[in-house]
Design a protein around this nucleic acid. Structure first.
Lengths: 116, 116
DNA sequence: CTGGATCCTCGATGATACTG
DNA sequence: CAGTATCATCGAGGATCCAG
C-alpha cells in the first residue's frame, strides 16, 4: 500500500546489493546478449571471451534468483538448457544496453588507446 | 576517420575495463550524487554510508582518469577541494541514474525483503 | 553438454595511523 | 579537511577434475 522506496545510499539497504549484482562486470555483458533470444551455456561462453564456466554459472544463477533470467531445462539427454530474459529482465536489459552503448559510443573520449 | 567500434565481448578490449569501472559498486553511487553539483570529499563520505576514505578517493581518481570527473582544488588552507562532473561525466550520470532508478522502482519485483 | 565441487592464489577492500 | 601509506584479511575468481 504505502511503498517505502529503498535507498542504496544506506549501507544495509538490500538495494545496494542489487545494484552491485546488476553492475557486475559479467552481468553487464550477459544480460544484453540475452536480448538476442534464449541462449545456451556454450553459446554464452563462446560469445563472452574470457569468462570462466564458474563465473557464467554463478552470474546466471544470481540473475535467476532476482527474477531477471529464466532457466529453461528441456530435460533431455544429453542435457539441453537455455536461459532467457524474464519480462523484468528484458526491461533491465534495455537499460543496460544503453549503458554499454554509451561506453562504446564515447570510447574515444574515455581513452586514448585504440581497440582492434 | 574510420572509427573501429570497441567490443567489450573481446577479452583484451579496453572497453571491457571501462565497463567494469563504470559498473563498479561505488561508481554507481558516486556519479549520480555529483548531479546535485560539486561535492567535497567529506560531503560524499557522509552521503554514501559505509564507503571508506580509501575507496572514495580511489573511485574519484579513476573517474577523473577517464575524464568523467573534474577535481577542483581551491588551493586554500585548510584544504578545500571539490569534485564535479565533466560534460562527458554528466552525460554518463543520466544513464547511471536511469539504472539506479530502475532498481529502486522495481525493487519489489526483485526481492521480497523490505527496506527500512 | 551442463554444471557441481575443490583447491589455491592474488588482488580488492577495510582499518589504522600519519602528513601537509 | 584532504589525502597517502601501510598492513592484514577475506573473498572473488580461475583452473581443474568429476558427474549425470
Amino acid at each position: 500500500m504505502f511503498d517505502v522506496k529503498p535507498d542504496p545510499y544506506v549501507a544495509m539497504c538490500p538495494s545496494r546489493e542489487i545494484i552491485a549484482v546488476i553492475g557486475d562486470k559479467w552481468s553487464l555483458l550477459v544480460v544484453p546478449l540475452l536480448l538476442k533470444g534464449p541462449q545456451r551455456n556454450t553459446e554464452l561462453m563462446r560469445q563472452i571471451e574470457g569468462i570462466s564456466q564458474k563465473m557464467l554459472t554463478q552470474t546466471l544463477k544470481r540473475l535467476e534468483r532476482y527474477n531477471l533470467v529464466d532457466r529453461h531445462d528441456y530435460g533431455e539427454v544429453p542435457p539441453r538448457v537455455d536461459y532467457r530474459l524474464s519480462p523484468l529482465g528484458h526491461s533491465l536489459a534495455t537499460v543496460i544496453s544503453t549503458l554499454d552503448n554509451w561506453v562504446i559510443d564515447n570510447y574515444e573520449k574515455l581513452s586514448v588507446h585504440s581497440c582492434a
